[in-house]
Design a protein around this nucleic acid. Structure first.
Length: 589
DNA sequence: CTTGTCTGCCCC
DNA sequence: ATTCTGC
DNA sequence: GCAGAATGGGCAGACAAG
C-alpha cells in the first residue's frame, strides 16, 4: 500500500472539522486498507508505529528532524527552524521546501510504501550508541528524499508526534466500527476491547479475523496493562456531591506516580505507569512490598507511589519520588528516597475481572487482598454525604500532605471505567479554588512563536517577578494555558511597543524566547504551587544556594493587570515568602 | 574526561 | 498536568 | 460534554562536542 494514500487521507482529515465527516473519511481510508496492513494503518492514525506499551522510542524529535529536512532539501537547519517558527509546523515547512522550484529537480519522487515507512522508523528507534544520531538522521533523510511533499509533511508530523488531524483513538474506533462491525453499534465493544488491551492494532486484527464476537471475547489479562480510569475536576464540595448522587467515597489524592501493578500467573510482578510504561526495575522495593503483601496469585491493582517517611508518617513532595525515576544507581536511590505504595483500586484477582463491580465491592476486595505494612497502605478514604464534611476532609487531606481528594461514586454506576474520564470520579484540588490558591501578578518579558492552531500568534509568554532590591525582573515561569483565542490575538499589539531586539538590561532569565520585551505588561497567573527550580532565577539563592523558584501548572486567569506598572508586580521576596509559608502550613491557613 | 543539547507516546 | 474550542 | 489540541516544570539518560 502506498503511503501517499494515507497521506492524502490525512490531508483531507486536516481540512475537516465535523466529527461525522472525519469519521466518514477515516472509514474510507480503513476500507481501502488491505487486511494485513490494517493494524499498521490503525497505529499510524494514532501517530504510532507500535502499541503504546511496546516501549518503542524513536530517540528522535524535532531538532534532529529539522536537521534531516535541512539535509534533504539542501538548506541549513537555521533556515528550516525559521520556517517552522513562521508556519508553526515542521511538516508544513518541509512540504514547502520540497515544493519550491529551487529544490525541484527531484521530479522523480516515486513516493513511499507504508511498509517501508514503518520499517525505517523502527530502525530509527533501534539505532543506539556512538554515531546513532547521525544514523537516525540519515534514515529519516533517506525517506524524505523519496517522499512526495505531502508524504514528507505527515512523515515529519509522525516523527514529532503531532499529527494534528483532529482525530484521536475514539474516532478511529468509530471508523473501525463503521467499516468492519456493521455500523456504530459495534463501537462500544471495540472501545471496551481497546481499553483492556491498549492495542488498537490487536483490536483491528481481532475484528477482521473473528468479527465483533472475537473482540467481545477479549479479556482483562494480568501482564497486559489496562487503560486507567481518570477523574473530572470540580472546585465545589456541594457540586461534587450533587454530581455523585449525594454520596461519595472521598479518597486522599497523593502527590506521586500512579502505578498499575500486575501479578501474572507465574508470580512475577510488573509495574506500569498510567502511560503504560513498564517501570518495575525502578521500584524494586515496591515490587517486594507487593510480593509480600498481595494475596491473590493473579491480580491487577492500582496505587500511588509516594516518597514517604514511614517512621514519621510523613508524605514527601512529588519532586522526591521523581528522583526514583532512574535506570542506574537504583540501590542507592532506594535508600535515599524511600517510598510507600498507597493502594486504591483492585481490577482483577484470581481469574476474576472486578472492573464491572461497583466501587464499594472493589474496595472491599482490595482490603481483603492486601496484608498491609508500614509502606504498603490503603488510601485514606471516607464515606461522605455532607458538603461541610467533604470540605473538612479536603482540608485534612491537604494538611496531611496530599494534593486534595478524589471523590468516587459509590452507586450502581460505579464500575471501573477503563480509559474514561467520566463523572464517576471527581477530583478536588487546592488550586481549583481561587481563594485557596496563590495567584501572582507577573510581567511579560518574552514570548514564543505559537505552533499549530496558534501559528502566527504567540503560543506562550515568559514571565518574571520583580526583584525590588536589585530593580531587576527575574524569570519564574512560562505560560501558555488560559489564553483564549481573543487574548492571543490581542497580545502582539499590546506587546509591540515594548518589543526589544535583545534581552533588556533589567531582565534576568536563562530562557531564550523568540521575542524579548521591556517589562511593562502585567498579567495574573494562577499556579498549583511554587517549586524550587534550577532553571528559573526568581529568588535565586534566597531559599537554596543553587535554585530559584518556578511555578507548577501555571495558567493565565484572564485578568490583565493594566492597573499595574511593571514594578507593581509580585516581588521575588513575596514569592519566597509564599513558598516558605506553603511548606509550613499546607492547609494554606 | 567534562560539558551541553536533546529527548522522553516522561511524570505530574 | 490545565485550558480553550468546535461540534 | 466529548474529543482534540494548544500549552506548563523538571528530572535522568544518551549522545555529541570540546
Amino acid at each position: 500500500m502506498r503511503y501517499l494514500i494515507v497521506a492524502e487521507a490525512y490531508r483531507d482529515l486536516e481540512r475537516l472539522s465535523s466529527r461525522l465527516a472525519l469519521t466518514e473519511r477515516l472509514a474510507a481510508l480503513l476500507a481501502q486498507t488491505p487486511a494485513d496492513l490494517l493494524p499498521t494503518v490503525c497505529y499510524l492514525c494514532q501517530g504510532l508505529i507500535a502499541p503504546e506499551f511496546a516501549g518503542v522510542d524513536l530517540g528522535m524529535a524535532e531538532k534532529l528532524a529539522v536537521r534531516a529536512v535541512a539535509s534533504t532539501t539542501g538548506t541549513s537547519a537555521e533556515q528550516v527552524a525559521a520556517l517552522v517558527r513562521e508556519t508553526g509546523d515542521l511538516g508544513q515547512a518541509a512540504e514547502r521546501l520540497l515544493t519550491s522550484p529551487a529544490t525541484e529537480p527531484a521530479g522523480l519522487t516515486a513516493g513511499l510504501e507504508v511498509g517501508e515507512v514503518v520499517r525505517t522508523l523502527r530502525e530509527i528507534a533501534a539505532a543506539e550508541g556512538a554515531g546513532s544520531q547521525g544514523r537516525k538522521l540519515e534514515l529519516l533523510a533517506g525517506l524524505l528524499a523519496r517522499a512526495t511533499p505531502v508524504e514528507a509533511c505527515y512523515l515529519l508530523r509522525l516523527v514529532t508526534r503531532n499529527l494534528r488531524l483532529g482525530i484521536g483513538t475514539p474516532t478511529v474506533l468509530d471508523a473501525l466500527a463503521q467499516v468492519h462491525a456493521g455500523g456504530k453499534a459495534g463501537k462500544k465493544v471495540l472501545e471496551r476491547g481497546y481499553n483492556i488491551c491498549c492495542d488498537l492494532g490487536k483490536v483491528a486484527a481481532t475484528l477482521v479475523s473473528g468479527g465483533l464476537a472475537a473482540v467481545e471475547g477479549l479479556r482483562v489479562q494480568p501482564g497486559n496493562p489496562v487503560r486507567v480510569m481518570l477523574a473530572q475536576r470540580l472546585a465545589d464540595a456541594g457540586e461534587i456531591l450533587a454530581r455523585l448522587g449525594g454520596q461519595c467515597a472521598a479518597e486522599y489524592k497523593y502527590d506521586g506516580v500512579r502505578v498499575q501493578a500486575h501479578r501474572t500467573a507465574d508470580g512475577r510482578i510488573e509495574l506500569f505507569t498510567r502511560r503504560l510504561e513498564e517501570i518495575s526495575d525502578q521500584f524494586p522495593d515496591v515490587v517486594e512490598l507487593l510480593a509480600a503483601g498481595l494475596g491473590p496469585s493473579e491480580a491487577i491493582l492500582e496505587g500511588e507511589v509516594v516518597a514517604y517517611d514511614a517512621a514519621a508518617g510523613e508524605l514527601r513532595p512529588f519532586g522526591e519520588v521523581m528522583l526514583r525515576r532512574r535506570k542506574h544507581g537504583i540501590d542507592q536511590a532506594v535508600q535515599d528516597v524511600p517510598v510507600g505504595l498507597f493502594c486504591f483500586e483492585l481490577l482483577y484477582a484470581d481469574g476474576e475481572d472486578l472492573t464491572m463491580l461497583p466501587y464499594p465491592r472493589r474496595r472491599a476486595a482490595l482490603e481483603a487482598a492486601l496484608t498491609l505494612s508500614p509502606r504498603l497502605r490503603l488510601t485514606t478514604a471516607a464515606e461522605v454525604t455532607d458538603p461541610a464534611v467533604l470540605d473538612a476532609t479536603f482540608a485534612q487531606a491537604v494538611t496531611d500532605g496530599c494534593e486534595g481528594l478524589v471523590c468516587k461514586s459509590t452507586g450502581p454506576d460505579s464500575g471501573y471505567q477503563a480509559g474514561a474520564r467520566g463523572w464517576q470520579w471527581i477530583k478536588l484540588k487546592r488550586d481549583y479554588r481561587t481563594e485557596l490558591s496563590d495567584t501572582a501578578d507577573l510581567v511579560i518579558v518574552g514570548a514564543f512563536a505559537g505552533r499549530g492552531r496558534r501559528a502566527g500568534v504567540y503560543g506562550a509568554v515568559l514571565l518574571a517577578a520583580y526583584d525590588a532590591d536589585a530593580d531587576v525582573f527575574r524569570a519564574v515561569t512560562k505560560c501558555g494555558a488560559g489564553f483564549t483565542d481573543a487574548d492571543l490575538a490581542a497580545l502582539p499589539a499590546r506587546l509591540a511597543p515594548l518589543q526589544s531586539p535583545h534581552k533588556p538590561a533589567r531582565v534576568d532569565a536563562r530562557q531564550e524566547p523568540d521575542v524579548w520585551f521591556e517589562p511593562g505588561l502585567v498579567v495574573e497567573i494562577l499556579s498549583a504551587e511554587l517549586t524550587l527550580s534550577p532553571n528559573y532565577t526568581a529568588a535565586w539563592g534566597q531559599i537554596r544556594d543553587d535554585a530559584g523558584l518556578a511555578m507548577r501548572f501555571p495558567r493565565f486567569t484572564g485578568r490583565w493587570r493594566d492597573d499595574k506598572a511593571a514594578d507593581d508586580a509580585t516581588t521575588t521576596r513575596e514569592l519566597a515568602e509564599l513558598f516558605l509559608n506553603a511548606r509550613r502550613t499546607p492547609a494554606g491557613g
